[in-house]
Nucleic acid binder design. Structure first.
Lengths: 199, 199
DNA sequence: AGAAATAGTAACCGATCGGTTCGGTTACTT
DNA sequence: AAGTAACCGAACCGATCGGTTACTATTTCT
C-alpha cells in the first residue's frame, strides 16, 4: 500500500532543522510564524498541517535538538572515569555552544528562560529538559562514587548540579559573545579544581 | 524656585520597582505595555512622559536592579580574601535568586537572553552588563594573586569567568524552580573545590 | 477515467503589539 | 486670579500576532 495523495513538497528534516535554529537563536516568543514560514520555505498552511501549532513545531524542533546538537551529555556519561565524564561534558558543551555553524549557547537555556503568560508551557518544558540533564549526571556520579571513583564523602548529586550550573553558565556567556577560546580557559580552570586533582 | 504645576500622582521609585519585577520575571519582550501600565497603576501617557519608550523604561528598571537586588557582587569583592570573595559572591547570588519576595534568578540573565530582531539593543545591553560582572571579579582576583592570596600559577581571569558562569548557571536553575536549599548545596560543593582548599 | 486523499497557495480572521493623540481635569505656585 | 504642569480614560495608529477558511494542484487507488 503505497502512499496516496500528493507527496510532500519539502524535506521534513531540513525544514525542521531551520525551525530549530530559529527558535534556538531568537527564542520561542522571539520567533514569529512569519519568520518560520519564510525561512523554512513552506506555506503557513502546510506548517499547521504538519505540526498543528507553533508549540507543536517547537516541541518537534526541541526534540531534534536534544537528539542532535544537544546530545553530548549522553556521550559524556559513557566515559570510564568521573573526571573524564566532567571533562567531556564541559568541553563538548563549550565546543557546541560556540560552533560557527550553529546558534550560540544551549537551546534549552536560550529558547525560553522567561516568557509571557501564554508561553509558560514552553518555558516549563525547557526547565524540565534541563532537570533531566541534572538527573543524567547524578546517576552517573552516584555510580562513580560506588566505584570509588570520587573522593570519600563527595556528594554526587551536588557535583552533578555544580557541573550543570557551569554548563548553563557557559551557554549564557556564549550567547553573550564570549569566544570559544576564552570559555575553554574557564573550563580548564574548572577541571583543575575537580575533586581528587592536585590543587 | 520650588516646583510648579501639579505634582506627580505616583511615587517614581515604587512604580519603577513594579516595572523591574515584571521585566525580571517575564523578560523584556514577554512584558507588554498593557501589563506594565496595569501593574504600575499609572496611565500609558504618564509612562511615556516619564520614560519615553518601553526601552527607556526597561533601562531605568535595569539600572534599578543592578543598584539594588543585583548589587551583591560589589559587596563580595570587598571581602578581605579571595575565598571569602567567592563564598560571598556565590552564596549571595543563590540567596538573591531564590528570594521569596522577588522574581527568581538574575535579571541580567532572565530578562533577555534571546529576542526578536527588534529587541537586539536590549539583549546586547544585558550581555554588556554581564561582562561587567566578569571584569569586576577579574580585577579583584588579580589583586588577590598579587597579594599571594591565590595558589601560584592560578589564572585570575579564568577563575573570574568560572565564578560568573556558576552564578549565571544558578540563575538559570533558580528560574527553573530548583530550590534555595538544593542550590546552596551546589555552592557548598563549588566552595569545597576552591583552589588552595583541601580536596 | 474518475473518485479519494493529501499538499499546495493566498487571502483573511479577530486580537494584540508598541506607540501616539485626543480633550478635559486637577493641583500647585506665583 | 492667572499660569503651569501632570493627571486621566479612551480612541486611534499601522503592524504583526497565531491561526483558519476556501480553493487549487498533484498523486494513487478503484
Amino acid at each position: 500500500m503505497a502512499q496516496r495523495g500528493r507527496p510532500l513538497g519539502y524535506e521534513p528534516d531540513k525544514v525542521l532543522d531551520v525551525a530549530m535554529r530559529l527558535f534556538w537563536a531568537h527564542g520561542y516568543e522571539g520567533t514569529s510564524m512569519s519568520d518560520l514560514t519564510e525561512a523554512m520555505g513552506i506555506n503557513r498552511r502546510s506548517l499547521y498541517a504538519a505540526y498543528g501549532s507553533k508549540e507543536g513545531l517547537f516541541e518537534a524542533a526541541l526534540a531534534r535538538y536534544v537528539d542532535g546538537p544537544g546530545a553530548f551529555p549522553h556521550a559524556a556519561v559513557e566515559k570510564p572515569t568521573a573526571y573524564e565524564v566532567a571533562e567531556c561534558y564541559l568541553r563538548q558543551a563549550v565546543l557546541s555552544y560556540t560552533c560557527p555553524e550553529l546558534p550560540r549557547g544551549c537551546m534549552t537555556v536560550q529558547a525560553g528562560l522567561t516568557c509571557s503568560a501564554e508561553a509558560e508551557p514552553v518555558r516549563d518544558e525547557l526547565a524540565s529538559k534541563r532537570r533531566l540533564g541534572i538527573e543524567l549526571l547524578t546517576k552517573r556520579l552516584v555510580r562513580a562514587a560506588e566505584e570509588g571513583d570520587l573522593p570519600a564523602g563527595a556528594d554526587p548529586s551536588a557535583l552533578a548540579g555544580y557541573l550543570v550550573a557551569l554548563n548553563h553558565g557557559f551557554s549564557v556567556q556564549a550567547g553573550g559573545g564570549i569566544t570559544r577560546m576564552v570559555l575553554m580557559r574557564f573550563v580548564d580552570q574548572a577541571l583543575l579544581l575537580w575533586p581528587g586533582r592536585p590543587s
